[in-house]
């Protein structure tokens, strides 16, 4: 091995790395909130909506889950641009990521909803809860609680895959990595540093999910396990 590593030119550009990291976190945060919201709505419609709506959600989920995110992002962002609709690039990227992750979330939450025992909703109806109350407190919340570990893994993946939107020109962490590469030609060092940052970010996202879970699901906190 004759290669001499030189990390200094990369580390020296830490403001770029910091900025990229913040954009990645911002994208992840927005997309996670929207993804879980839309995914939960999707799961409810998929299990209890009118027949045409159920079919529509099913098609949406299958199309998204069986095509690559990169193609979806190109299709959406370049497509809308060619139709004369020029979205701010960060907005377009967040839209593409949300459409993608909401499909996976729909599938995960659907599994949670289907695991809720019929007797639970019947009991809630007997107690005189409104339809909305039944959905919110007896179906969606316990369903999310049961599938929470899968959701956390899915959103760690989302954070990692958000690096793909650098391909449409978003200056998130990987986009900044590309810039630093062309400045310094220290390709390998750039990937080592950026890989380490992503590793830390994935721990951060996991920890964030754990914290939110503690606040959202007190029963889980007391029992130490899901129901």
């Amino acid at each position: 091995m004759t290669y001499t590593f030189d990390f200094w030119p990369v580390l020296e550009r830490w403001p770029l790395l910091l900025k990229g990291t913040l954009v990645t976190l911002e994208l992840t945060l927005i997309t996670t909130a929207l993804g879980i919201l839309l995914g939960s709505v999707g799961a409810v419609l998929r299990t209890g909506g009118p027949r045409p709506v159920r079919a529509f959600v099913a098609v949406y989920v299958e199309v998204i889950r069986n095509t690559p995110l990169l193609i979806q992002a190109y299709f959406l962002i370049f497509g809308l641009a060619s139709a004369g609709l020029r979205l701010p690039i960060l907005f377009g990227a967040a839209l593409a990521l949300t459409i993608n992750v909401a499909a996976y979330t729909t599938e995960i939450v659907r599994a949670g909803i289907e695991s809720i025992h019929r007797g639970q909703t019947e009991a809630a109806e007997c107690l005189g809860l409104s339809r909305l109350q039944v959905y919110l407190h007896v179906i969606i919340r316990p369903a999310l609680e049961r599938v929470y570990p899968s959701l956390a893994s899915q959103y760690v993946l989302l954070m990692l895959f958000s690096s793909i939107v650098s391909a449409v020109g978003v200056d998130e962490l990987f986009g900044m990595a590309n810039r630093i590469q062309s400045d310094t030609f220290r390709n390998f060092e750039v990937f080592v540093v950026v890989g380490a940052i992503y590793l830390v970010l994935s721990v951060v996202v996991r920890f964030g999910f754990w914290l939110v879970g503690q606040a959202l699901f007190p029963r889980r906190r007391k029992l130490g396990t899901a129901l």
Binding site: Y3, F161, S163, N187, F188, V194, G195, Y198
Partner: peptide, 23 residues
Amino acid sequence: QIIQGIPLLVLMGFGFFGPSILG
């Protein structure tokens, strides 16, 4: 833990530039 915490794009970088560094 490490591989599942790194984006595939970064691994692509390792696959592309790593072999020449290893000689």
